[in-house]
């Protein structure tokens, strides 16, 4: 039996075992779509790149790990050069009560 737990065969009865199956998909398409989404929200290139740097965001950080730091950045810029960054000016009704506020 291999010595390290990670090399041992899966044990379905182990509640901590990673059991879920994958579905074939394209990580590069995912990367492009995520960048387009945040470009539609008006994020700057550096802000979008930062989403891939933060390990707390596992999906985007995982893509960066998969493709590499430089390649990910280049791909982000390439997508932005194609689709642009959507700009909006927004205004919302002011809150009817200041926030935070105290109960009277």
């Amino acid at each position: 039996m291999p010595s390290h737990p990670k090399d041992r065969p899966a044990e379905p009865a182990d509640p901590f075992q990673m059991l879920a199956g994958g579905v074939e998909g394209d990580p590069l398409l995912m990367l492009d779509c995520v960048v387009e989404e945040y470009a539609r929200m008006g994020l700057e290139a550096d802000e979008i790149v930062a989403l891939f740097e933060d390990p707390q965001f596992l999906a985007t950080h995982g893509l960066r790990s998969l493709f590499g730091v430089e390649a990910t950045r280049e791909r982000v810029l390439s997508v932005l050069s194609r689709c642009g960054i959507l700009r909006v000016t927004a205004s919302a009704a002011p809150p009817t009560a200041p926030f935070p506020c105290k109960r009277s």
């Binding site: 932005l80 642009g84 960054i85 959507l86 700009r87 909006v88 927004a90």
Partner: peptide, 8 residues
């Protein structure tokens, strides 16, 4: 309001 996009 949607404005003109910017390009990188």
């Amino acid at each position: 309001t949607i404005e003109e996009p910017t390009w990188v």
